[in-house]
Each structure stands twice: as structure tokens, then as C-alpha cells.
Amino acid sequence: MTDQATDRPSALDQLPGELMMWVLIVSELLVFGAGLAAFLAVRITDPAGFAEAQGHLHRAGAGVNTIVLVTSGWLAALAVQAAEAGRPGRLRALVAGAIALGAVFLVLKGAEYADLAHAGITFETHAFFTFSYLLTGFHAAHVMAGMILLAVVAVPASPRAVETGAAFWHMVDLVWVLLFPVVYLL
């Protein structure tokens, strides 16, 4: 092997940000992808029951939450640019906005859970709810983790740290745009 060959950048060198964050992103996509595929596979056994159960969810609220999350992701992406431009004040304001929208997402999700609980709907009411609680609950836990991570990386405000925190936040966004149509629309 020549020196020229060993110096050639690999495809992985093109990855923006931390490699470990990409490993996490791929892992999370695999986990949620498997969960959503299982949800759709079980749905084949009882399509009428799943359709009836889906009617109890807040479809409009989930649609609003999609707007909330993609807007939060936009603020996080702008925060990365502010970090790279050496503007910590703007960066922290943008991260605060992204975290606030994460809180809005959780409030809307919490309202849906409260209504389901009020109607006496639990994990065990129907297979639809077992899956929907697991998938959306696991996702909501990631939203909470992402909010904490964004707050932590905004303190040192280094471009590398902010890029890593924002990548986690975009992963949360990415999972939601796949989860939303499967659980709420189909």
C-alpha cells in the first residue's frame, strides 16, 4: 500500500460531527424502525381494532407537534452556525428557543396521555396502545434527553459540542417524522 493510498480520506471522514453520534443515530433508527415494523405487522391481525384505537389519539396535536419539532430543529441548526461564527449570545438564544419548543412538544404529548388516561386507556387496553405508548413514550424520553443535552452544550458553546448536541436533536426530529405517519395517519 502506498503512502498516497493510506492518506486518501475514507467515506467516514466525510461525516459531519462526531462518529459516535452517527453510530447512535443509526442505532436509534434501527430500534424505532423495528418497533414501527412490528406495530404494522401486528396491525394486520386486527386492522379494525387498530383503526378504532387510533381514533383516540390527538391527530391534530401530533400534526402541530411535527411543526414544533422541525422548527426546533431549524433553531438548533442555526445555533450550530452561530457557534461556528463565534456568536455565543445568539447561539444560546437559539438553543433556548429549541429547548422551549421541545417543552411545547412534551406538553402536547402529555395532554394526549392525560386524555387517554382519563378515558381509562392503558398499555393493556389494546395492542395498538401497547405499541403507541412504547414508541411515543420512548421518543418523548429522547426529547427530554435532547433538551438536557442542548442545555449542557450551550454552556461551553464550542462549535464541536453544539454540533454534537444538535445532531442528537435532529435524530429526535428524524425519528418523529417516521413515527408520526405510521402511528397517527395510516
Partner: peptide
């Protein structure tokens, strides 16, 4: 149609929010 729209959204997030437009093979 619904899943195609989801795929388009995922593509935009990967390309622009996560910066994969700078790494076309990936």
C-alpha cells in the same frame, strides 16, 4: 403518498439539518 412525504422529510433532515449534503455517498 403519506410514506413518500415522510421519506422526503427524512431526506431533508439528513441532508440539511444533519449536514449529509456534504457527504453524498453516505
Amino acid at each position: 403518498l403519506v410514506l413518500s412525504l415522510a421519506g422526503a422529510k427524512a431526506h431533508v433532515i439528513l441532508s440539511r439539518y444533519l449536514g449529509l449534503s456534504a457527504a453524498p455517498p453516505i
